[in-house]
Design a protein around this nucleic acid. Structure first.
Lengths: 271, 271
DNA sequence: GCAATCCCTTCCACTCAGTGGAAGCCTAGT
DNA sequence: ACTAGGCTTCCACTGAGTGGAAGGGATTGC
């Protein structure tokens, strides 16, 4: 190839992924040069690949010479984990209607809580989590619920790795966190108080599937009226039970679309 | 290459797209052989590419040897058109809360209505449209609203091409449809009666953006109580106005993520 | 128990699709 | 007119990608 170099060991597939990943964090449109830097590809290669992806509808050009993710990609990706989202959504809506608080559904994706659905009002509120976004398991209520109610090896593996604090209130000490998770396990629910972001608290409960934890649902509540968050527990438990009933006939795998990426892997033999 | 053949003219990119497209229609997981057939690729090539995509998290393996779309792809794709979805969603929810009927938001994607959001209750109802799915513009109320309230060239171009009927009630005659669209334009809303599927009717109104049509919102109503669908018009107009207000500060392009794919193209000079 | 079927995985010699440096363009700013 | 930044085109080279064929492994049928 030109210059004979061609950065060996990189498959075309990995290059395409690198280009898509450039859009994983930002919601802006990017120009060629930015993509080429972010994907660490020569400009001419980026140019050609982006051109192909645009033709395919995976990416699309904006007016001012930028590039962003295309609707075709979005439409294809909508089929991922559709069963869980389609089934659970009305219940998450109910949760919002009954509490008036931002309602969320999350699953575990490796070491992160992946937000699958989110229902909120028109009132403008500071927004950290977003559908498709991830937050560390130890900082969020839905995450703590996932840790507390999964099989023991999940909590053990998670506590063994370093944990970044997000605010001054975030529990990042393994011993302290283990205590809190055990308490959550005993109580049947998890809470956070300004551990993701100052000004908001949250409360979450697990949703089971065939006896194991499937996902978790929770509320995000401004600190100003989070004094007695536990008043929402009856509703949370009720919705959890209803999601459990509505999803029980669907195998867990097709529900979640299987956890992806670098994983806290399931031990080879059963734990 | 082996055999020296290598189906020339197919870029790796196009092969990857072909594999992803295999999942565009089905929600089942597919096995290698099925993918290889659907994408029209040799089995060994499919095997290698699927392997790479699985490693990247774009696809994921299910327990029983199948493959389905991966969460990573879904998470990346969530950034597409996020502004419109995030902004409009609470209003679509309101629409549902106020009417109790399945509420939808759609945009035009080429010759199809692309469903961007959908809010519905827990009651089991027959479901044709789905988020990320497409239906022909002439068969749906949201589609008719899009045709009726877009610039004239859109309707003209659409009526010039053949239209498939979906039920016995679908308008597929261009003259008849043009009359109906003009009537819709005059009335300010569009309806369908069992034109997508027997047993359901629908009503929709346009949502404007800087004077032009941006998207449309509508309700799907079982024929059994669709006698006076127009009773919902005040709510529909109210919600439309509120979405208009909430999105007015966002440029149309970043809202929609630009229409992709083979298009009824915008005429070169302004029409 | 053996053959048939289906599907997945591995191998490997061939070669063309993909490559990326360099040069050329175009627009905007000074 | 000159500079700077970003986009597009060109093209000779070559190793990444290719796919037919053969090998496994599981399941079914008789």
């Amino acid at each position: 190839m030109a210059g004979g170099s061609s950065q060996p060991g990189r498959s075309v597939t990995s290059k395409i992924l690198a280009i898509l990943s450039a859009f994983e964090t930002t919601r802006r449109s990017l120009n060629l040069t930015e993509i080429s830097k972010s994907a660490d590809l020569p400009l001419s290669t980026t140019h050609r690949l982006v051109g192909e992806l645009v033709d395919a509808g995976i990416l699309s050009r904006t007016g001012n010479g930028g590039v962003q993710l295309g609707l075709r990609l979005w439409a294809i990706a909508q089929n991922t984990g559709r069963q869980l989202r389609d089934t659970a959504r009305p219940f998450v809506q109910d949760l919002f209607s009954l509490t008036g608080e931002t309602s969320q559904l999350a699953i575990r994706d490796g070491n992160m809580a992946l937000y699958i659905d989110r229902v909120y009002g028109t009132r403008r509120v500071a927004r950290v989590s977003r559908v498709g976004g991830r937050l560390p398991l130890h900082a969020t209520a839905v995450g703590k619920a996932i840790l507390a109610f999964s099989e023991d090896w999940v909590m053990d593996a998670y506590l063994a790795q370093p944990m970044e604090p997000m605010t001054a209130h975030t529990r990042s000490n393994p011993v302290q966190l283990r205590n809190e998770l055990n308490r959550a396990k005993h109580n049947g629910y998890a809470i956070t108080r300004e551990e993701v972001r100052l000004g908001t608290c949250s409360i979450a409960v697990p949703v089971y599937h065939t006896g194991r934890l499937g996902c978790s649902i929770g509320l995000v509540i401004p600190t100003s009226h989070a004094a007695n968050m536990e008043r929402h527990l009856p509703v949370l438990y009720g919705i959890s039970k209803r999601i459990e009933a509505a999803t029980s006939h669907i195998p867990l795998e097709t529900l979640l679309g299987i956890i992806s990426g670098p994983d806290m892997n399931v031990p080879e033999s059963e734990g």
